[in-house]
Amino acid sequence: MKTVYKLIIALVILATTGLTVVACSSTKGTYSDVPATADAVAEEEFKMEKSGAQLWGETCNRCHIAPSPADYNDTDWETISLHMRVRANLTEKESMKIEEFLKSAN
């Protein structure tokens, strides 16, 4: 039982710390005005969303140097993207956007 207690305490501490950090750092939409028009909505989304190129630079470099898009073809990048999504625990959006960028830039 000692082990279970240790595990629970550690998880609670981590979850509390995580939620605190997230709550303090995330400002997405919290105090922003509601966009009135479709153009304004699109502009707001444009501001928030990162490009595939940006995600490619930020995400791949966390473990290894970001790969050159020219080194594989579109079909290969589809396979590699699925593999890396699972291996590096990427979000679906990160994985899809990086794949789109790599396929457009190769």
Binding site: V22, S25, S26, K28, N89, T91, K93
Partner: peptide, 15 residues
């Protein structure tokens, strides 16, 4: 089981 969540800027991954 593993996966990741986008928390609107921060991200959380688990396994």
């Amino acid at each position: 089981l593993r996966g990741a969540f986008d928390l609107g800027g921060p991200k959380l991954n688990y396994s």
